[in-house]
Amino acid sequence: MIEVQDLTKRYGRHLAVDRVSFKVAQGEVVGFLGPNGAGKSTTMNILTGYLSATDGEVFIDDTNILEEPERVKQRIGYLPETPPLYPEMTVREYLRFVCRIKQVPKNEIDDRIEQGLHKVGIVEVYNRLVGNLSKGYRQRVGLAQALMGNPDILVLDEPTSGLDPKQIIEIRDLIRDLGSDHTVILSSHILPEVNEICKRVMIINEGRIAKDGDLATITNDLADASQVVVTARADEQATRDALKGVVGITRVDLMQSAEKDATEVLVLSEKNSDVRAEIASAFASKSVPLIGLRVKNATLEEIFLQLTSGVQEVAS
């Protein structure tokens, strides 16, 4: 459905996107995950035809977007990072304008707007000026805009940014719903969000795809049990003593404990080892009350650290 080959974008000397290639099949919901400035928005801007690539090509169903831009653009709905809204128009006027530039046939415009309003839940602000809407509503009007042309591909750049938790859940549900009959590419810098909506994740860093695949596999790969957080109802010395006998531990670091009268330490062991069982029995044998034992989840930052230090290995 979407095929990107060796996409490169250079801003002067700065390399924003560096030879990115991927394919997205029909009906897939793909998340671009990456820190700010990783090249997510630039890639999306090229996919939608807003920017041109310095090098490389984008095909939508084997049609190069540069060769038949009008035909391809009709099939893509795009919600950019900043929703492209005209503050002086009402929601109704705005959506009507969008329908017209998306070449929606005149007799279908009213139905299309009606459906869009219900889908994204903005019926109640239908006649208000876009400029007076809250951030959450604006984001939703932006989303309605992307749906107006009845596209089969949706490109959503940080669709939940700036929303409150309730709205985030609503938008996520909506996107998941849209994913059933659209091909969706969305971007985010929040790991759990992508986790919720997308099956497939592309981690982008410094303009390159650092990892592409199933999210569960990616996190499992990275979060091995070599980092364990241990919480004990004891002072630091007793905790360290209890850990002393366990074979394979390389380092013990004191952490800030969330609980009173408890010590929390981060235990590092040899790579790909799992010392949790040994830790539990060590504490039991020394009668130090162990109240918590968990594998430290890799945060997005850590995933990036790991990925960027091992880009060569991943790329192969």
């Binding site: 035809g49 807003y50 809204l85 998306k102």
Partner: peptide
Amino acid sequence: KQKTDQLLLTSPIT
């Protein structure tokens, strides 16, 4: 400035 050019330039118009 308002980034609405992103809407115009990604729409099927020249």
